[in-house]
Design a protein around this nucleic acid. Structure first.
Lengths: 313, 313
DNA sequence: TTTATCATGACATTAGTTGTCATGTTTTAT
DNA sequence: ATAAAACATGACAACTAATGTCATGATAAA
């Protein structure tokens, strides 16, 4: 077996095991201890952060996290990674911030001048715009971690009525329009609710779960309706355009040949309050026919507005 | 010099030069032609797509694009790349689609089982939501290319009034809410306008530019208030909470000791229409005092609502 | 037909790698 | 204090791999 292959095997073995002695490697790969020392010198020269402890109970320790075998990328592939990173640029808080920085550095350094120019151009001529929030989301990383590790959360949360304590089972975390959201099952209210990660004031504790639960992708796909009511709306072209931008309605918009549209879809009763502002904004661009409750709510709101500004009838 | 280093040098030389003879490499690196043949066999075994043409004027040709030297990533760094890719998932049309796929494959294959699990989790528990557009953007790649290469564009464009021909100088391309936009200087109208890439019907021709122009980042930064009007609003606690969630107002909200708040800030006249729906939604939680135009617009809207639903006074 | 290429094999020479042994040093358990 | 378990390093012979030289063949274009 070639030296390169052997070095690679040892690199993988070492970075997986973290702490080991030269003898262990020698036994594992059937080579002499002297050779192991030489190999480790080579790996160290190649940049693997490894250090040795002398004496009894000593041995080698790999500092960094696990390494992948070296990977060959084409220039275009490198550019595509920078392109993807570009899409994260307008987020204020990001997990993997440090890692993304170091990947970018490693790649950029290996590029030839010409390709560096291309990356610079991608960086300055392509953007993924988000509202640049000044809202801090300090608990994003912790929340993500809990979601990924399938852990329940006890947390302090800033609700409409002030600070409350919640006990939830996260489904996942998603970003939209520069904000991070946390769909989760609320044990108190016994249903899935949507939280905003920036409104989480503190995570009190987490607890493991042994069974599998829904993930965000499934959640996006399986919107559960407990108290169905029929939402029936006629839309102008502009109405169609705007409803298409609303996650919960997007799939329900039926577009006619002339560009106008209709929504005729069961929604949960709880969603009425949520969709009211949208139809309020749309005004004549959306004519709600059902449910009556939505119409009443809109009219009440409109009357309130007129009253405040002294135009009440 | 070690064989590995030499092979790497040749890999870089070869993938930069694309076409060459064994003699050229031999001269360049002061090695024998026989060794070059052996090296090329090695590179070919390593997966470099290279082929030879026999006979006079023959030589080697590297098929793929330029290669980067092998890069060592940590597992966490690999995960961060998948995280970034995740943010592109809800876009329908993407440049670098193929490259992103092959990067993902290369990385995923090199991961150990445990890390594969982590990537799978990032993929299923984290999302960057966009309205999943059903609109096709076939010319995205071409438009991007022209923007990156600082080229002017003559194009057929689908405007409100039908198909028109435009002559523009692109500033860049950006994505927002699942759609791609092209801010560009319009030579006919002599000002910067915003185009939608999905409405570009065809690119007729492009022309080089030798001077530098604005890029998207600069353009985002150069937002100026042309017609300032005073926005003066009193907010309840709930009003404060909601205004804090709106990017454009966020910084302008002054919070009082009792939790209520005030907005008193100059905004552009054009923004009135934009902020109307917000204050409409807030109802009694926001009392707009200035500008009158905003109040009128809100009342008009409210009256429209009542009229549509048959509650007009 | 000649020339410029790649392709491959044989073989001596050179360079690099490995194992063995020796000698040190450092740390910890006994 | 001593022994044991670890790393560190050097010397050198034995082994293995890489290289250059030469030879032969194939292919395609001038």
């Amino acid at each position: 077996m070639s030296k390169a292959k052997r070095l690679l095997d040892i690199l993988l073995f070492a970075s997986a095991k973290k702490k080991f002695t030269a003898q262990e490697i020698a036994d594992e790969f059937h080579i002499s201890v002297r050779t192991v020392h030489r190999y480790i010198l080579d790996l160290s020269d190649m940049g693997l952060p490894i250090y040795a402890e002398q004496g009894r109970n000593g041995g080698y320790t790999v500092l960094s996290s696990k390494m992948l075998p070296p990977i060959l990328f084409t220039e275009e592939e490198a550019v595509s990674i920078f392109f993807a990173f570009q899409s994260l640029r307008y987020y204020r808080d990001l997990p993997f911030d440090a890692e993304i920085g170091s990947v970018a550095q490693k790649l950029y350094r290996s590029l030839q001048v010409e390709a560096k120019g291309k990356v610079d151009k991608v960086r300055s001529y392509i953007a993924f715009w988000n509202p640049t929030r000044t809202i801090d989301t300090p608990l994003l990383k912790d929340t993500l971690e809990a979601a990924i590790e399938n852990k329940n959360i006890h947390m302090h949360y800033e609700s409409k009525g002030g600070t409350t304590t919640k006990h939830i089972r996260p489904i996942g975390v998603y970003a939209h329009d520069g904000l991070w959201y946390l769909p989760a099952f609320d044990y108190t209210k016994q249903k899935v609710l949507l939280y905003r990660v920036d409104r989480i004031l503190s995570i009190i504790s987490t607890e493991e779960n042994n069974d599998e639960y829904m993930n965000v992708e499934q959640w996006f796909g399986s919107y559960e309706i407990k108290h169905p009511v029929r939402l029936y709306v006629q839309l102008t072209q502009e109405g169609v355009r705007q409803c298409k931008s609303v996650p919960s309605l997007e799939g329900a918009v039926i577009i006619h040949e002339d560009g106008t549209g209709t929504i005729d879809s069961p929604i949960d009763k709880g969603e009425i309050a949520f969709s009211m502002p949208l139809f309020l904004r749309l005004g004549a661009h959306a004519r709600v026919i059902e449910p009556q409750e939505l119409i009443d709510s809109m009219c009440k709101h409109a009357e309130e507005i007129l009253k405040i500004y002294g135009r009440a009838n």
